[in-house]
């Protein structure tokens, strides 16, 4: 296989990156056009950049409230999922328990559950305990998505931690719990952190539960909030472009900082070592 990168290869790369990024570029260019210039006009650049769309985007709809809601829900979900999952994944990879295959099978099956199959009982439950339009009303169903995902990825990370350290800690008289806290956890911290990012993104992006359970505007999350910018009769593309840019910025920052970790986390569950 040719591992040298020639000029043709770089041209391909530029074209590829351009195609992937094109929707973002176009939406960004639209967001800084004056609202009147958006319709029936396919000029790439505007002569008269304006922030009017941004102003409309945050005044017509509580966009920052949506972002705050998403942030709180995703953070709570991540903390709960990581808490339960790290303990379970440690036991699954390290302790001599039986039925590991069965347990992992159940967890994998749970991560494959179609959300539509569980939404109506969850909706009934959340309504019955009075958690509609609240943060916990979303955090509880999000466990279905996040917990199996977290266990699955963490199990792979924990497996890679060298055994010898644990053995020597045991010889020195450390209890299994001490071993976990003092040896495994610090070594596993990067993996836990990576898993946290992935769970956070998964919770941030969830749509179906957020749409169904938090129906009042002030409790909507970003994905649902964005999809409600369009009304029956008009579609304010300027507002939508600006809102899209605003909600994409935090994700772009997250991806730019943690790209290596994210790739490691994404691929850990699917590749045999």
């Amino acid at each position: 296989m040719n591992k040298r990168a020639g000029i043709g290869f770089y041209i391909f790369l530029v074209v590829f990156v351009f195609f992937v990024m094109f929707p973002f570029i176009w939406v960004f260019l639209t967001s800084i056009k004056p609202p009147g210039e958006i319709f029936n006009n396919f000029n790439w650049f505007t002569a008269d950049p304006s922030l009017a769309s941004y102003e409309n985007a945050i005044t017509n709809r509580p966009l920052f409230r949506y972002m705050w809601n998403s942030f709180v829900v995703s953070t709570l979900t991540t903390l709960i999922a990581i808490g339960f999952a790290s303990v379970a994944a440690y036991a699954l990879t390290r302790l001599p328990i039986r039925f590991k295959g069965v347990i992992l099978g159940i967890i994998l099956a749970a991560s494959m559950f179609p959300q539509i199959a569980i939404i109506s009982p969850i909706y009934n439950f959340v309504t019955a305990v009075g958690l509609r339009n609240s943060y916990m009303g979303l955090v509880i169903p999000y466990i279905t998505v996040s917990l199996p995902l977290a266990i699955w990825i963490l199990a792979t990370f924990f497996q890679k931690i060298p055994w010898e350290l644990e053995e020597s800690a045991k010889l020195d008289g450390a209890s299994p719990f001490q071993t976990f806290r003092k040896i495994i956890f610090p070594l596993a911290a990067p993996g836990v952190f990576t898993t946290g990012i992935l769970v956070f993104i998964a919770a941030w992006n969830e749509y179906l539960f957020a749409l169904t359970i938090n129906t009042s505007d002030e409790w909507r999350t970003v994905p649902v909030g964005i999809s409600f910018y369009q009304s029956q009769f008009t579609i304010p593309w300027g507002d939508i472009s600006a809102a899209t840019v605003l909600v994409t910025i935090p994700i772009v920052i997250l991806v730019l900082i943690f790209q290596r970790r994210i790739v490691a986390g994404l691929t850990s569950g699917s590749v045999k070592e």
Binding site: L13, F16, V17, V20, M21, P23, F24, V27, I201, W204, N205, Y207, V222, P223, V224, I226, S227, Y229, Q230, I240, T244, V247, T248, I251, V252, L254, V255, L256, Q259, R260, I262, V263
Partner: peptide, 19 residues
């Protein structure tokens, strides 16, 4: 390249659908 590949994956599907 890695970042540009990750961003479409990372943004919410609903936002991508609006775009």
């Amino acid at each position: 390249v890695r970042a540009s590949v990750l961003i479409p994956w990372a943004i919410p599907t609903a936002v991508a659908a609006m775009m």
